[in-house]
């Protein structure tokens, strides 16, 4: 039989091309540039010196990872029950519940973070409110100092990224076949047992994509730490921003790129670890969003 040559303008090629072009232009080339800058100096000659900065900022790296991890765990603890409750609602009410979760995202991310500043400040809404109650009860109240702390940064991360945890978990929970649960019930499983043996394992893909979608932006944020941390706590995102913008007087794309590269590797590795957990459980549609 003669080998049939695939026509270049096949339907498949035509539909794939835009994505391929997009990926090359906005994913591959930028990553290539990051790698190039990370291993060269200002004159473009090969060097490993930029990598020495990673050691210099090791502590900041750990702090960023630590805060992002704490936020991710809190998000998970808050989001799972929430997603579960929504998934168990009557279908016609689920839409509005999800809409309510999405609603704050209609407002710009920056403005929402600014709003937290006014809430957490020493003269902010919380302190004034508690102060008023304390006055009414005639108790001495010195005010909580919340703003410009690492706690405030974690709060900002949890608040901003929580929907990214709820949505994927909710999606997988609604996709679980109800007949599996009914069958388990028929065979005499308790609620706890049904959750442990059926619901929990089947929701793993949603949990994993939720963790990724919270951890990745949290570990690289620089604006939350600036607004809620008072510019006193630099996270790795702030240092990278600093090197690229030259806001402290010296621009250094090379060092910035080296730090970004490490951050990317860190993210890819953590995603790899997460996917490893996912291997055994069969993916339920709409799970992984990366």
């Amino acid at each position: 039989m003669m080998k049939t040559k695939k026509p270049f303008f096949s339907a498949k090629n035509l539909t794939v091309t835009p994505y391929a072009v997009w990926m090359v232009l906005f994913v591959l080339i930028p990553i290539g540039l990051v790698v190039y800058f990370a291993f060269t100096d200002a004159n473009g000659t090969f060097t490993l010196e930029n990598l020495s900065y990673i050691k210099r900022y090791a502590e900041t790296f750990w702090l960023s990872v630590e805060l992002a991890l704490i936020s991710t765990v809190i998000c998970l603890l808050l989001a799972y029950p929430m997603a579960f409750i929504i998934a168990k609602m009557p279908t016609e009410r689920q839409g509005s519940a999800i809409l309510l979760i999405m609603l704050p995202m209609w407002m710009n991310f920056l403005i929402r973070t600014y709003a937290w500043m006014t809430i957490l400040e020493n003269n902010g809404i919380i302190n004034r409110f508690v102060g008023m109650i304390a006055q009414w009860l005639q108790i001495e109240f010195e005010g909580f100092s919340m703003i410009n702390t690492n706690g405030a940064i974690v709060l900002g991360m949890v608040y901003n990224y929580l929907p990214y945890m709820i949505l994927p978990i909710y999606t997988v929970l609604t996709k679980i076949d109800n007949s599996l649960i009914e069958a388990a019930r028929d065979l005499g499983s308790s609620s706890v047992h049904v959750f442990r043996r059926i619901i929990a394992p089947l929701s793993v893909p949603g949990v994993i994509s939720g963790i990724t979608m919270v951890f990745v932006p949290a570990v690289s944020t620089f604006i939350i730490s600036y607004l809620l941390g008072g510019g006193k706590t630099y996270l790795i995102g702030n240092i990278i921003e600093n090197y690229f913008l030259g806001s402290s007087g010296a621009i250094n794309y090379n060092v910035g790129a080296a730090l970004s590269l490490l951050l990317m590797i860190l993210i890819v590795v953590s995603m790899g670890i997460m996917n490893h957990f996912d291997k055994d459980s069969e993916s339920v549609g709409g799970g992984m969003i990366v």
């Binding site: 240092i239 600093n242 030259g246 402290s248 007087g249 010296a250």
Partner: peptide, 8 residues
């Protein structure tokens, strides 16, 4: 550059 390093 010195200023930048001190600042960071």
């Amino acid at each position: 550059t010195l200023q930048s390093n001190h600042w960071i």
